[in-house]
Nucleic acid binder design. Structure first.
Lengths: 110, 110
DNA sequence: CAGATAGGCAACTAAAGGGTTGCATATTTT
DNA sequence: AAAATATGCAACCCTTTAGTTGCCTATCTG
């Protein structure tokens, strides 16, 4: 597997982690800055603690969130790097598209 | 379901569509500007035409790609709007994080 | 028109995902 | 020390997803 492909796979993992409404909600509740415990994150989801714990694991494996233990509590905090990387990836794609549009325009005006 | 939740679901669908290495590859080959047929998109994937067709359907339902018929060929083109929206979503989240950091900083310096 | 090419549809399989329940373990709290 | 709280682990269920194969239809092309 080429390096490009490897990167694509990694990037896909991040998008996949974001590709679930529950996880997107959890994330939006985590980006308040301070880490939250699993139990707290469970509140208002209508799900069991285990379900939420799984979702947080998914986010963690994708690097979107990072865990830290505080006593008996497991806290999770947003890992901005991954999000910024995803943002950069999209910018690259949309950027390429802009370039393509420019080329197309140049071609048509010839 | 609230409007926020509905939007979250929609946005999650886009991320989910991007959350697969195969689809990410297809997308990167589509962003050259001009639409491509399914058969052409299949080349070099190591998959069957039907598999690729399914992936393109997924991208289409998420609004990431749009179909158009040219004779017997089915062409797909990148739909930049969806990508920009996803980008905006991430910016909003990372932006909120920046604000949170600012608040935290202010709190610590008090 | 006959053959080749591009797709669509459907059925089927294997694996991954999202959730739940039950039970064991570690930390607090009283 | 006992009760309560926060998690972790594992087994299990159901649905979705990623891929395949087989076959039928539409559109070119020679």
């Amino acid at each position: 597997m080429s390096m490009v492909e490897a990167e694509t796979v990694t990037q896909a993992a991040v998008f996949a982690a974001l590709g679930d409404p529950v996880r997107l909600n959890l994330l939006s509740r985590l980006d308040q800055g301070r880490p939250q415990s699993i139990t707290v994150m469970t509140e208002g989801t209508g799900l069991t603690r285990q379900a939420v714990a799984k979702h947080l694991k998914v986010l963690e494996r994708a690097g979107v969130v990072s865990p830290s233990k505080a006593g008996r509590e497991q806290h999770y905090a947003v890992q901005v790097r991954a999000l910024v990387a995803a943002e950069a990836y999209l910018q690259q794609v949309t950027g390429k598209w802009d370039q393509a549009l420019t080329r197309l325009r140049a071609h048509l005006e010839r």
